[in-house]
Computed example of a mutant assay.
Amino acid sequence: MSAVIGQVEDLISQSLEARNNSYSPYSQFRVGAALLTMDGRVFQGCNVENASYGGAICAERTAFVKAVSEGYRRFVAIAVACDYNRFITPCGICRQFMNEFGKKLEIFFVNDDRTYRQAVLEDLLPYAFGPEDLHDK
Rank of each mutant, 00 (worst) to 15 (best):
Q118T: 10
P131R: 13
K104C: 14
L125G: 04
D83T: 12
A67M: 05
Y116P: 03
V65S: 09
F101H: 05
E122L: 06
A119I: 07
E106D: 10
C82W: 00
F97V: 02
F64I: 09
I57S: 11
S69Y: 00
A119T: 10
G102L: 03
I107M: 08
K66C: 09
A56F: 12
V48R: 00
L105C: 07
C82Q: 03
V110L: 05
A63W: 00
Q96V: 12
Y84R: 11
P131H: 13
I88E: 05
R61V: 15
R74N: 12
F64K: 01
A51L: 12
N111A: 13
G54A: 15
G54F: 15
V65R: 05
E100G: 08
L105E: 00
N85V: 14
V65N: 09
C94G: 05
E70V: 06
A119S: 12
A56T: 13
P131T: 11
K103H: 14
F101K: 02
F75S: 01
N50Y: 09
F43V: 04
K66R: 15
D133Y: 05
N111P: 01
R114Y: 10
F64C: 07
F64T: 04
F87M: 08
V65E: 15
L105A: 06
L124I: 05
Y53M: 12
G102M: 04
A77T: 04
F64V: 08
R61N: 12
D83C: 10
N111G: 08
T62N: 06
I93E: 14
L105H: 02
C82I: 04
Y84G: 15
R114G: 11
Q96R: 13
R73F: 15
G45Y: 01
K104A: 12
A51G: 13
A81S: 15
A67P: 01
F64Y: 11
L121I: 06
L125H: 02
E122G: 03
F108T: 01
F87S: 08
S69P: 00
G92E: 10
M98F: 03
D112G: 13
F109Q: 11
T89D: 12
F97R: 02
G92I: 07
Y116K: 05
F97K: 02
F97I: 03
A67S: 07
Y53S: 15
V42T: 03
G130W: 03
F97S: 04
A128G: 09
Y116L: 09
C82P: 02
T115C: 10
I57F: 10
A79M: 06
F129C: 10
L124D: 04
G55W: 09
Q96F: 07
A59E: 03
V76S: 09
M98G: 03
R95Y: 04
F87N: 06
R86Q: 14
K104E: 12
E132Y: 07
K103L: 14
I78A: 04
R61P: 01
P126E: 06
I93L: 15
R61T: 11
G45Q: 02
M98R: 01
M98V: 05
D123H: 09
Q96L: 15
A63R: 00
